[in-house]
């Protein structure tokens, strides 16, 4: 074999190896994105959670409204039960919501209204509906199941001086969602979520910022969440207070009947 032919063969092998590595790096990137999300979820997992919340809505005209609620969760991602009980203002005091999350389908939700002494099932056929006047939709309040999305690592970006992985999350075919895709920013230092931007086609419609991230019982927790409705120009801010994890909560507290006693 002459020298030129040898060089050509080596070049061909080198190209093949380079291509394989590139392909693997895409696979590696997807694997990395999924792994990052998995890790973020694992680090935030707890058997239960409880906090006092202050919900502020700021309308496009600057008008403000505040509500206070208590939040309790039992169970971990995808199979948890949540009770939100409103404490203020007076018009909504005593109203309570029970949300039962499922890994494979939309959550079941019930609401107790003391003024008419009725519980009702909330028929969530339109999960894009805003959650009682806030900028969160009902879908936004559901827990995300990592298996229902495809992930791709897009790179890195700083969010509020914290370097974050920038991951694209696209709902799989089987998952019904109002969003075409989401861009999730996960902090590299502690795997806490920093931001989630939600898109309909290529238009950003909602932006959820996590801030005041504090280590509470080993879990990095955002004590302030701000959801902006990009189209409306309105903002909803949720401030968490008295956050506790792994508190002993009875299953009995997460039934429709128990909503009456909140």
């Amino acid at each position: 074999m002459n020298r030129t032919k040898q060089h050509l063969i080596f070049a061909a092998i080198a190209c093949a190896l380079a291509s394989a590595r590139l392909g693997n790096s895409r696979l590696y990137a997807a694997d990395s994105a999924r792994q990052i999300i998995d890790e973020a979820q694992n680090r935030a997992t707890s058997k239960s959670e409880r906090y006092e919340g202050l919900l502020e809505t700021i309308g496009e005209g600057g008008e403000r409204a505040e509500k206070r609620w208590s939040f309790e969760r039992l169970g971990s991602h995808g199979q948890s039960k949540v009770v939100i009980a409103f404490k203020a203002p007076a018009e909504v005091k005593g109203v309570a919501l029970l949300i039962v999350n499922h890994p494979d389908r939309a959550s079941d939700q019930w609401m107790w209204t003391p003024n008419i002494e009725r519980d009702r099932r909330i028929a969530m056929q339109d999960r894009s509906t805003r959650f009682f006047g806030t900028d969160f939709s009902f879908e936004d309040l559901e827990e995300r199941d990592v298996d229902q999305f495809d992930y791709e690592l897009l790179g890195e970006q700083k969010i509020e001086n914290a370097l974050c992985w920038k991951i694209q999350s696209v709902p799989k075919q089987a998952k019904s969602s109002q969003y075409t895709k989401s861009i999730v920013y996960v902090r590299k230092d502690n795997y806490a979520f920093a931001r989630i931007e939600s898109f309909v086609k290529d238009l950003a419609v909602r932006r959820l910022n996590y801030s005041s991230i504090t280590n509470i019982q080993g879990i990095w927790t955002a004590k302030s969440l701000s959801m902006t409705d990009v189209r409306r120009g309105s903002l909803t801010r949720l401030t968490l207070e008295k956050v506790e994890y792994n508190v002993p909560l009875s299953e009995d507290r997460f039934t429709v009947q128990s909503l009456r006693d909140r």
């Binding site: 409204a65 509500k67 409103f86 609401m111 209204t113 003024n115 009682f132 006047g133 409306r232």
Partner: peptide, 15 residues
């Protein structure tokens, strides 16, 4: 506005 009413929660909470 997109909403029907200012505060749907109050709307539902008050009979």
């Amino acid at each position: 506005k997109d909403d029907v009413i200012d505060d749907p929660l109050i709307f539902l909470a008050q009979a």
